[in-house]
Simulated scan of single mutants.
Amino acid sequence: MRFVRYDDSQLGLLTDDDTGIIDLTDRLGLDSEEPLVEYIEGDYDASEYADTDPDHDVDDVELTSPVSRPGKVIAAPLNYENHIEEAISDRDITTEEWFSIKDKGYFLKAPSSVVGPDNGIELPFVDRRTDHEIELAFVMEDDVKDVSAEEAWDHIFGYTILLDISLRGDQDRSNRKSYDTFTVIGPCVTTADEIDDPQDLQMELQLNGERRQYENTGDMVYTCADIVQYASLGGTLETGDVITTGTPEGVSELADGDTIEAEIEQIGSMTVDVTGRDAHYAEANVQKSGQR
C-alpha cells in the first residue's frame, strides 16, 4: 500500500496508476494532525479499501508530506562513493576530506523544514548556492534502541522519496539543510512489504527536463539497516521518525523558476517547483553589537 497525506491532514491510499486517492480518514475514523503516525500506532487495517474506487483525483488535492512534523529527521552524509568523489573535488559541496557516518555520525534536519511535493521549495538567498539532492528515505514503524542491522529491517514501516535541499557554505551541516522547505518528502510512503529490495531501487532526478542524478540504491556505502543500527545506538528511534540515506553524484544548483522531477522505482514520482526570495545573504548577516 502507498499512503499519502493531503489537504487538511487527510490520510489516503494512492491508486496503482498514481491518479487517484482513496480516503482513509473517514473510513477508519482517524482524528490526528499526524494521521499516518496514528495509523501506524493504532489497530487499523487499510488493506480492505485498497481496491475501492478513488474519492479524489490527485490533481484536485494538495499532496503534503506523509509525516508533517516527524520527531526527528536523521540523515546520513556522503553515502555514495561517486558523490564522495564529487564532493571532494568541489569545495562548494564540502570543505572537508572524505568521512563516513562512522567517522562523524549522522546529522539532523529540523522538522520545520519538512514539506510535501505540492508545497514547493523556496530558496532563502539569491546570492548563495543551493543544491538539490535526491535520496531514498524511510519512516520508522515503532520505537527502537540499540537494534542490530539484521533486526532493523523489521522496524521500517515504509519507504519514500526525500529531497535534501542544501545551502552550500561553511556553516554547520544541520543549519544549512534546515531552512523552511528544505526537506521535501513524498509523494507517498510505500509499505515495506511492497518493496522487493530497498537496496536495489533505481532513482532519478531531472532538473528542468534534464537528467542530473541517476543511481541505484545498491551503491550505498552503508545500507538502510546500517544507518538504523548506528542511529539507534544510545538514542531511541521513534514511530514516525524519518531517516534518509544520502545522495549520489550529480547535485547541481537550483534557481528561481526551476522544476524538479524526482522518481524512485516501486515508490513513485513527484514534481516540485522552486521559487526564490528577494533576499541577500550579505544583508542577512547579523552585525556584531559588541555585547554578549
Rank of each mutant, 00 (worst) to 15 (best):
M1P: 11
F3S: 03
F3G: 01
S9R: 15
Q10C: 05
G12E: 07
L13D: 08
L13A: 02
L13G: 07
L14C: 06
D17W: 10
T19F: 01
I21Y: 01
T25P: 09
E33L: 10
I40A: 06
S47K: 12
S47E: 13
Y49G: 00
T52P: 00
V61Q: 10
E62C: 08
S65A: 15
R69P: 00
G71M: 04
K72T: 01
A75P: 10
A76M: 06
A76D: 04
Y80A: 02
I84D: 13
E85R: 15
E86M: 05
D92H: 13
D92T: 13
T94M: 08
E96M: 07
E96N: 10
E97Q: 12
F99N: 10
K104F: 06
Y106D: 01
S112Q: 12
N119P: 00
P124T: 11
R129V: 05
T130Y: 07
L136Y: 02
A149Q: 06
A149T: 08
E151G: 01
I156C: 04
I161A: 08
I161D: 08
L162E: 04
L163N: 15
S166D: 04
L167E: 13
G169R: 06
G169V: 05
D172M: 07
R173N: 11
R173M: 13
R176F: 06
S178A: 07
V184F: 04
P187V: 01
D193N: 13
I195N: 04
Q199F: 10
Q206H: 11
G209N: 07
E210S: 13
R212Q: 14
E215T: 03
E215H: 08
G218T: 01
D219S: 10
D219W: 04
M220F: 09
A225K: 13
A225M: 14
D226A: 07
I227V: 15
Y230P: 03
Y230K: 14
A231D: 09
S232A: 13
T236N: 02
T236A: 12
E238T: 14
T239M: 08
G240I: 10
D241Y: 10
V242K: 10
T245H: 06
P248Y: 10
A255G: 09
G257S: 09
M270A: 09
A279E: 14
H280I: 12
H280G: 05
A282Q: 12
E283V: 14
E283M: 12
A284N: 12
V286S: 13
